[in-house]
Amino acid sequence: MKRLVLGIVQGIAALLLTIGAFTFFKACGDMDGKFMACHWAQNAAVLIGIVLSVLALIRIFIPDEGIKTGLSIAVFVLSVSAAFVPNTVINLCMMKDMACHTTFKPAVIVVSAVLALAALADIIVGAVRKKETK
């Protein structure tokens, strides 16, 4: 039950990252048809979000406890990397009062942190269970 809840939390957070990154917490729009650097940060976040969603969904349906833990390790590493995409790996706009700084960056960091924590908790639960079954 614990692992199912953690799996669902991971799935919801991954989908939120994917959909949110190009809808309700998207970066700045285009200016006269020209995209700024933050647009590419948004694309990178969406791409990582899609990979995370696929991993999280597979993790929910696969019954093997060991594979679940392995997938959670991958989700943890990827979600930590996603948090570094805005402004660290890919630059955002110059002014900090723009949407990419005020909405996109904090939202990606918060959702990625929730995802990483859920994945970490799942890894720990998986490890404890494996120890108990030995």
Binding site: C28, G29, D30, M31, D32, K34, M36, C93, M94, M95, M98
Partner: peptide, 10 residues
């Protein structure tokens, strides 16, 4: 004008 770094006026 919209500077080359950014989509906003500075």
């Amino acid at each position: 004008a919209n500077s080359e770094c950014c989509s906003a006026k500075v």
